[in-house]
Computed example of a mutant assay.
Amino acid sequence: MTPITTFFRNLEAKCCAACGQTINEQAESYATECFTCQEQASFDAYKHYHQKR
């Protein structure tokens, strides 16, 4: 059985699903987008919501 530290050390770098940049975070995180893309998506959603009013 592989030690847990070896398992996580050998994982490939995570890439953002939106822009493809490497995500610098813990491998066990469920995030699929980098912080910049997350912020842009939040801003776009905010603008869309407030334009309807």
Rank of each mutant, 00 (worst) to 15 (best):
A31G: 11
S42D: 14
Y30Q: 12
D44P: 03
C37W: 04
K52N: 06
A45M: 08
D44T: 14
D44A: 15
N10A: 09
Q26R: 13
T2N: 08
D44K: 15
M1K: 10
T32P: 01
I4G: 01
Q26F: 05
F7H: 01
S42K: 15
T5Q: 09
T5S: 11
E25L: 03
A13V: 04
A13R: 11
F35E: 13
R53Q: 06
L11A: 01
A31F: 07
F35L: 13
C34P: 09
D44Q: 15
C15L: 12
A41G: 02
T36W: 00
T6Q: 10
H50R: 11
E33G: 00
M1P: 08
Q51V: 04
F7V: 00
C34G: 12
T32G: 06
A18Q: 09
M1H: 08
A41Q: 12
C34N: 10
K47S: 09
C15R: 15
T2R: 14
H50T: 11
A18T: 11
Y49M: 09
Y49N: 11
Q21T: 15
T22F: 03
T22S: 09
A41P: 00
C16F: 02
K52P: 00
E28L: 07
K14A: 03
Q38K: 14
E33H: 13
C15Y: 07
